[in-house]
């Protein structure tokens, strides 16, 4: 079976503690509950969660949507985005099947990256490692003061959105949109076509989400 890997790369640094981390946790729940109502996602999507603070952790390895259980997240520490990107690349390299003569490869992984700060480590080294792997859609989400320039370099032009935690409706809307994006990706995937490869190929983001150009 060709799986659609979906990675959530989440910032759990100290500045995320309190309301932001709670909203992210709720968001992950919303995402999973939404995807469970979608037959494509239910049969195709696999979710993985990687967090970064002072270091990066693979909190949930790539797991079948039906078996996925949302992790408990605790904020604290620095913003080692570079470590997060490297960890993500390593996990994808290890878990995402590539086509060979004897197996059919998975779909290219989708990545949703959320951060509210500036990296505190050598993030360019992490970026280089990240770029070494092949990705489907990569969406960067800057929460509050998240560094959109950094995210643009990771996700690409036009693939960065901005949210404010003071606006819980926007946060909710973001995760609903992620859900729709995963669904639409698994749809076009299963309709045998080319994969989605940019924000423009995903459903239009709702008005609450500000796309950064």
């Amino acid at each position: 079976m060709r799986r659609l890997p979906v990675y959530l790369l989440l910032d759990i640094s100290g500045s995320m503690s309190g309301e932001p981390i709670e909203q992210v946790k709720n968001g992950v729940q919303t995402l999973v509950a939404g995807l469970r109502q979608d037959p494509y996602a239910l049969e195709t999507a696999y979710l993985g969660v990687i967090t970064f603070s002072s270091t990066a952790q693979e909190v949930v390895p790539l797991t079948e949507l039906t078996a996925f259980q949302a992790p408990s997240l605790q904020a604290g520490g620095g913003t080692s985005l570079g470590a997060g990107l490297s960890k993500l690349a390593e996990c994808a390299l290890r878990d995402v099947a590539k086509s060979t003569a004897t197996q059919k490869g998975d779909w290219r992984p989708m990545v949703f990256l959320m951060t509210d700060g500036k990296p505190t480590d050598d993030w360019l080294a992490g970026l280089a490692r990240f770029k070494h792997e092949k990705w489907g859609v990569v969406v960067g989400c800057a929460i509050d003061g998240g560094d959109t320039d950094v995210l643009r370099q990771i996700a690409g032009e036009g693939s960065v959105v901005q949210l404010n935690t003071s606006d819980s409706a926007a946060m909710g809307a973001f995760f609903k949109w992620v859900t729709a994006s995963v669904s639409s990706s698994s749809k076009s995937i299963e309709q045998g076509g080319k994969e989605v490869s940019g924000l423009h190929e995903l459903p239009t983001p709702p008005p609450e989400i500000k796309v950064v150009f």
Partner: peptide, 11 residues
């Protein structure tokens, strides 16, 4: 014509 990942084919 299959690529490294699923869905990558030629048209």
């Amino acid at each position: 014509d299959s690529g490294e990942h699923a869905g990558t084919t030629l048209f």
